[in-house]
Simulated assay, not measured.
Amino acid sequence: MSTLPAPPARMALSLPALHVPYRIDGRLVMVDEPLRLGAGGQRAAAAAQFLRECQSHDLVVHWTPATDDPLFTGSTNEVSATAGLLRHLPAPGPLPGEPPELAVWRDRHAYGQLYHRRGPDFVTVMDRREPSAAARFTIEHPDLLATFLTVLDATPVACLSTTGREAVDLLTTERLAWVTDGWVVALPPRIRRWPVPCTDI
């Protein structure tokens, strides 16, 4: 009598090797140092990329912002705009005396508010960060698609071609990419499970 083969081993989850020290236990990711999303440049873009990848895998992330992070100590309009842009990412833990926009981020955050799916030679994006202004995009122009796929990794804007920089301007205008102090990163996570009714996918 033959025995049944063992089930295939489950692959360990792989998150990008960025400037973010973390520990992972099942679906829980604990970031070991405060993140400085408002500090700008490579570290901020890499932190956003890290959080985006965690969101892509529907992981629970415990992270806190640095208490002096300009993102959370700036003007109310600046904090509100950036929190609205990044609301689809795992929300930061509470800080004493934090601006109310961070509590709103935690209250309104949900998996599937912004995501992308890939097809042959195109990407579709669903943006529901603002429920009253939900939008769907299809990225199929070769230059725009190539740039979107490139900036899934945090990238210096100066390293892009003129066409790439024009594409970044379009992606930024539609709030699908974040430019911070000369670095750019795409914001929509790649969807890996059905988080919303199939009519919204």
Rank of each mutant, 00 (worst) to 15 (best):
H116P: 01
H116L: 14
R117Y: 03
R117I: 07
R117N: 07
R117E: 15
R117W: 06
R118K: 11
R118Y: 06
G119V: 02
D121S: 14
D121C: 08
F122M: 13
F122W: 12
F122Q: 11
F122V: 04
V123A: 12
T124D: 13
V125F: 00
V125N: 00
M126T: 08
M126D: 04
D127Q: 09
D127V: 03
R128K: 06
R128Q: 08
R128V: 01
R128A: 11
R129S: 01
R129H: 04
E130S: 13
P131S: 00
S132F: 04
S132G: 03
S132L: 10
A135M: 11
A135N: 07
A135K: 11
R136F: 09
R136G: 10
F137N: 04
T138P: 00
E140Y: 02
D143F: 11
L144W: 05
L144Y: 04
L145G: 04
L145C: 04
L145D: 05
A146I: 02
F148Y: 15
F148I: 05
L149P: 03
L149E: 15
L149G: 03
L149K: 12
L149H: 12
L149Y: 06
V151W: 10
V151Q: 12
L152C: 11
L152I: 08
L152M: 08
D153W: 09
A154F: 01
A154G: 02
A154V: 04
A154K: 01
A154P: 02
A154Q: 03
A154Y: 01
T155I: 00
T155K: 00
T155L: 01
P156N: 12
P156V: 13
